[in-house]
Computed example of a mutant assay.
Amino acid sequence: MAMGSLSDDDDFNPEINTTPLVDVMLVLLIIFIMTIPVMNHAVKLDLPRAASQPDDVKPETINLSIAADGKVFWNNEELDESQLANRIADAAKVTPQPELHLRADRTTQYEKVAQVMSAAQAGGLTKMGFVTEVPK
């Protein structure tokens, strides 16, 4: 009688060999028994205590808008290129450094947006974000 035959006369009784499973479980048990004392080991220290207040100084926000015709507005005040460079240089010196929120009209040429971004970077401003409208 062969083990793999499927005839009606045979009583085929397949069994799962659990020996490898038991071996793996015993190895894992030994590993956990060895590592648990290492994880619970702690050094008792008398650490110094200090009380401090969080610094909640919010940086100023500068709204820099670019119209479709290329005009630049600093907090709703129109500027030319030299005034823009001066304002950016002054804002970069303030601590904490203000955040520049850049708004551009939908039909504004990308070249003008890139020029303003380049002027902000050259002036020393590091925090810049783009403001967009949520579609309705």
Rank of each mutant, 00 (worst) to 15 (best):
residue 10 D to H: 07
residue 9 D to F: 14
residue 83 Q to C: 05
residue 104 A to K: 12
residue 134 V to E: 06
residue 64 L to C: 07
residue 105 D to K: 04
residue 4 G to A: 15
residue 94 V to K: 08
residue 1 M to S: 10
residue 105 D to L: 00
residue 74 W to D: 02
residue 5 S to H: 08
residue 31 I to F: 10
residue 96 P to A: 00
residue 93 K to R: 11
residue 40 N to V: 09
residue 1 M to G: 14
residue 35 T to D: 01
residue 29 L to P: 01
residue 104 A to R: 13
residue 72 V to M: 02
residue 37 P to F: 03
residue 104 A to W: 02
residue 108 T to F: 11
residue 99 E to L: 10
residue 21 L to C: 02
residue 134 V to T: 07
residue 77 E to W: 03
residue 27 V to E: 07
residue 68 A to C: 00
residue 62 I to L: 09
residue 74 W to Y: 08
residue 134 V to M: 12
residue 93 K to Q: 10
residue 28 L to Q: 08
residue 79 L to W: 02
residue 77 E to N: 15
residue 94 V to E: 03
residue 47 L to Q: 11
residue 45 L to N: 06
residue 134 V to C: 03
residue 73 F to R: 02
residue 55 D to S: 08
residue 30 I to Q: 00
residue 94 V to Q: 10
residue 9 D to M: 13
residue 131 V to H: 01
residue 92 A to T: 01
residue 51 A to L: 13
residue 97 Q to N: 00
residue 111 E to Y: 05
residue 115 Q to W: 09
residue 46 D to G: 04
residue 42 A to R: 15
residue 123 G to C: 05
residue 51 A to C: 08
residue 117 M to N: 00
residue 79 L to Q: 12
residue 35 T to R: 06
residue 32 F to S: 12
residue 78 E to V: 13
residue 23 D to S: 12
residue 74 W to K: 01
residue 112 K to C: 00
residue 122 A to C: 05
residue 106 R to K: 12
residue 100 L to Q: 03
residue 9 D to I: 11
residue 14 P to W: 07
residue 57 V to K: 14
residue 33 I to S: 13
residue 50 A to F: 15
residue 85 A to D: 15
residue 97 Q to E: 13
residue 126 T to L: 03
residue 67 A to M: 07
residue 67 A to W: 11
residue 57 V to G: 05
residue 57 V to C: 04
residue 76 N to E: 14
residue 39 M to C: 04
residue 109 Q to W: 01
residue 14 P to M: 10
residue 102 L to K: 01
residue 111 E to P: 00
residue 124 G to Y: 02
residue 2 A to L: 10
residue 106 R to C: 05
residue 74 W to M: 09
residue 10 D to G: 01
residue 7 S to E: 09
residue 118 S to Q: 15
residue 77 E to H: 09
residue 48 P to G: 04
residue 120 A to T: 00
residue 1 M to E: 02
residue 134 V to L: 09
residue 64 L to E: 04
residue 56 D to S: 06
residue 125 L to W: 05
residue 68 A to H: 05
residue 17 N to F: 04
residue 48 P to F: 09
residue 33 I to P: 00
residue 125 L to S: 01
residue 95 T to L: 05
residue 19 T to E: 15
residue 35 T to F: 13
residue 17 N to Q: 05
residue 37 P to L: 06
residue 101 H to T: 00
residue 73 F to W: 03
residue 59 P to K: 12
residue 26 L to E: 12
residue 36 I to M: 08
residue 21 L to G: 14
residue 127 K to I: 02
residue 108 T to C: 11
residue 25 M to C: 03
residue 103 R to T: 10
residue 20 P to A: 14
residue 87 R to A: 13
residue 53 Q to I: 11
residue 119 A to H: 09
residue 108 T to E: 01
residue 113 V to K: 01
residue 23 D to A: 15
residue 10 D to W: 07
residue 17 N to H: 07
residue 30 I to C: 08
residue 48 P to I: 02
residue 83 Q to G: 10
residue 42 A to W: 10
residue 121 Q to Y: 06
residue 114 A to Y: 06
residue 112 K to V: 15
residue 8 D to K: 15
residue 110 Y to R: 09
residue 91 A to G: 08
residue 83 Q to N: 13
residue 120 A to P: 03
residue 33 I to C: 07
residue 126 T to P: 00
residue 129 G to V: 10
residue 60 E to Y: 04
residue 32 F to T: 14
residue 10 D to Y: 03
residue 41 H to E: 14
residue 116 V to M: 02
residue 48 P to V: 11
residue 58 K to I: 14
residue 28 L to M: 14
residue 92 A to L: 11
residue 127 K to D: 06
residue 85 A to I: 11
residue 57 V to A: 12
residue 71 K to G: 08
residue 90 D to H: 06
